[in-house]
Structure formats: C-alpha cells, structure tokens
Amino acid sequence: MAVDSYIRKRFFPHIWCPGCGHGTVLNALLRAIEALGLSKNEIVMVSGIGCSARISGYVDVHTLHTLHGRALAFATGVKLSRPELTILVPMGDGDALAIGGNHFLHAARRNIDLTAIILNNRIYGMTGGQFSPLSGCGIQATTAPYSTIDHAFDVVELSRAAGASFVARTTTFHVRELEKMLIQAISHRGFSVVEVLSQCPTHFGRRNQEGSAVDMLKKMKQATVPLNSGKLDLDPGLIPRGVFVDSDKPEYCELYADLVARKSADDQAESVAADARNEV
C-alpha cells in the first residue's frame, strides 16, 4: 500500500508550525507501518493532548484522541480487550512524563504491548512555550523567564527502570534510523518506548537562541552519537542514540491469557474430580 493511503488527506495541511519536527515523525511512522504491511483496520492510534497528540487525526486507522497524559491508560483498555490489535501511542514530553508520568511508569511495569512514541521537543508548544519535565536546567520558557531550575528526566533510564522491554532514542534528523527503530518497536512484543528528539523552532528555538529549524536539526546531529561510539567517553555531554533495551520479557496480555488457561485447566480438573467423587 502506498504511504499516503494511510493518511486522511482531507485534513491537510496539518496544524503544526513550519519547521516543526512532528511531521517528520508522522512521515517515519507511516513508512514503518507500510514496511510492516499492517492493515489499517488492525491499528489503533491513541493520543493525549498537545501538538504531538494531533498526529492521530491525520492517520486513517482507528483513532482515539483522549485526555492530557492519559493516552496510555486508554490504550491499556483497548489492548487488554483486543490483544490482537496493534496500538500506537504518540505522546509529547509533558503529556507522557509530567501529567502522564504515572501511567507511563505503570504501562512500562506491566510490559503491555503498546508502542509509546515520545516526541520530545522539551517544551509545551500548544499552550505557548512553558517548560516541560524534559526541558532541563537553564532553559528559557514562558513560565521560566529567569531560566529553568528543574532537572530533566532521562527517558531511556526511566523507561528501563520502569520495566519497558524495548527502549530506543533518536532524533528527527536521523530519519532512516527513526523509521528502523519504529519498525523494531512496533514488531516488539511488550512495552516499547521510542524517544524522538524533535524541534520546536517556534517556542523552544526562538526563546533559547537555537536559530531556525535547520539550525536545530544540525544541533541534534552534533549533540548525539550512536550509543556504542567511543566519543561518548571523551565528551560526557553527548547524547547517545540507538536501541538501549531489547529484552524478551513476558508481555501482560499473554500473561493474562496464561492466567485464564491456568484457571480453566484447574476448573476442568476440579470438575473431573467432582464427577469421580459423585460416582463413588
């Protein structure tokens, strides 16, 4: 199927600002879906609130545009109900890790088969440029006129500690790598996290003197290296990219199915035993 057959063309042009990285993520995601040969009817996309959440409106699959921070909670209900469906959950940094932080931790802990895509532009774009839990210290934002004093989460470490069985990070500059990681993440059985460093020239770039979208993309290229690169030892300020976790850990819906099978076997054994007792 052609890539553009996965989109709802009538809603274009999209709402994102010129230079925004979110369209790049949408593009890579559509290519990943196409490469996997998934049928549109077997995909459910669940999103929360924010710029990133608007991705769901543009994709011609079953789309559930929910509440700020709650996408993974809704997605958990869909997935447990219909484990055969492929569930994609694009989220912003504030959406996933501030208001939605607890749902994120617990979805990872359960290792439920959802693909969480965190579009990390380190800012609340839709509400006008307030800092997020991924902004980090020393950032200018509309709620940090004297610069931020809040430390940032490390999404990779957080996801690993919470129990996610697939964790990867890349940027909107590395589009081929992004597509490849999304293919791996969607194919993975278990909770997968793909953190995509994305640019918000309108709110983050402008306030933090990072220049145009192109300048921001170049910066992401320079600030990141593959996770096995020797440069990481020389410059601890570099951000590693790559697949950090890819483990084979029992998935929640499969464990639930096992539990049901166990219970049904016990019931059967019990009923056989009861019949035997009655015959005696």
Partner: peptide
C-alpha cells in the same frame, strides 16, 4: 478481562478504551 490500574484516573480511561472495542 480484569485489570487493577495505577489509580482511578486510569481505571476510568481503561474502561472507555475497552468499551470502544465492544465490551
């Protein structure tokens, strides 16, 4: 299906998701 969620917020969200699949 039974699931114990992390709080009541997510519980309410999860039943909405499940209902949409027809349950």
């Amino acid at each position: 299906k039974f699931i114990q969620m992390e709080d009541e917020i997510s519980s309410m969200c999860a039943i909405i998701g499940a209902s949409l699949t027809g349950r």
